[in-house]
């Protein structure tokens, strides 16, 4: 290679690279994409070799390092070959991609081993796995990855795994829930129907916040909320009373001190005991108040949603059971439906 003009600070953008290669190869370039920060240049199979040569020898491009070469099964369209090149002088990376001639039956591609020596074994591996023949390769056989007498092209989508023919895949294809009869519960998920990971995260965060909130004031306010929904004076009054109250459970504190614990530990434990007590009281209050508090609390809302979902599921299950039983006995079906519905309620 002669002098390299390419430099890191003057690296060509994908657009400029494409323009340059289009100037030289004309129709040989069929398109380009930039996806996942990777510039892919689609090359006609006839220009594959020329494109690789240009990429290496063009002084502004100077893709001097051969990175990777692989095959892609494009289903009925045949096979693609992808080569990844890297330039040590500009730091650019380029994907060259071509659709092999010959379709599925006899895919053929030009070899680029005379440009990049490193492509030799990569092309042999691609031959092994996909059966793509590289014209001009010094020797694709014997097979490099599989045993030498291996038959078939294992990475083609239509390759059959003989073990799977003898014994089907032991797991379920998709993780599925089974009802009590061992039937797969079929569900068509809708957005917002079930708490996804993100909703679940939010609900859990809200729960964690509720549980970890050590502020006695907040609990106090929460208890007050239903009757006085917050004039500023009331709030400050409430705070005042909370400040007057001890921050921890005096009883527990005294007991722990008597047991010989340090004051700091006793204080924190007593604080926890107090919070626990308050929470128990608040929970009792909530249960009495019913759904009022639940509206504002995302955790409670999520729980309610989950409840609904469970109920719906139980109903669906009951329906299924009823259908199944309908042939035998209608009364029995009704019973089953009732019991399942009760289960859902519980």
């Amino acid at each position: 290679m002669t002098e390299v003009l390419a430099r890191r600070d003057r690296a060509l953008t994908p657009e400029e690279t494409e323009k340059l290669l289009r100037d030289r190869l004309g129709d040989g370039i069929t398109g380009s994409t930039v996806e996942f920060a990777t510039f892919t240049l689609h090359v006609a199979p006839g220009s594959w070799h020329a494109a690789a040569a240009l990429c290496r020898d063009e002084q502004l491009l100077a893709y001097d390092m051969f990175d990777n070469l692989l095959g892609v099964d494009a289903r009925e369209d045949g096979f693609d070959v992808v080569a990844v090149l890297y330039s040590t002088s500009t730091g650019n990376r380029i994907c060259l991609r071509t659709r092999c001639d010959g379709g599925r039956d006899n895919p053929v591609c030009d070899s680029i081993t005379d440009i990049y020596r490193g492509a030799d074994w990569m092309e042999r591996e691609t031959w092994d796995m996909f059966g793509i023949e590289f014209v001009g390769h010094p020797g694709l056989e014997p097979r490099i990855l599989t045993v030498e007498n291996f038959e078939g092209w294992p990475l083609r989508k239509d390759f059959h795994l003989t073990s799977r023919v003898a014994k089907p895949w032991p797991g379920v294809a998709e993780p599925a829930e089974l009802d009590e009869d061992g039937q797969v519960i079929e569900r068509v998920p809708k957005i917002g129907d079930a708490p996804g990971p993100y909703d679940l995260d939010k609900a859990m965060a809200a729960q964690a916040k509720a549980i970890n909130a050590p502020e006695v004031d907040e609990l106090e306010e929460g208890a007050d909320e239903p009757e006085s929904s917050g004039s500023a004076d009331d709030g400050s009054d409430g705070d005042g009373s909370a400040e007057a109250e001890p921050e921890f459970d005096q009883e527990t504190f005294d007991r722990l001190i008597a047991e010989g614990k340090s004051e700091r530990i006793a204080r924190s434990k007593a604080k926890a005991a107090l919070i626990k007590k308050k929470r128990a009281a608040a929970a009792a209050g909530d249960a009495a108040a019913g759904a009022d508090a639940g509206d504002d609390d995302p955790a409670a809302a999520a729980a309610a949603k989950a409840d609904e979902r469970r109920k719906a599921q139980a109903e669906a299950r009951a329906k299924k059971a009823a259908e199944r039983a309908a042939d035998d006995d209608e009364d029995a079906a009704n019973d089953a439906g009732d019991s399942a519905a009760q289960e859902g309620d519980a």
Binding site: T146, V147, P154, F159, L161, T162, S163
Partner: peptide, 9 residues
């Protein structure tokens, strides 16, 4: 790799 094309069982 029980169902693999290349692994000895």
């Amino acid at each position: 790799y029980w169902d693999s094309y290349s692994v000895t069982k």
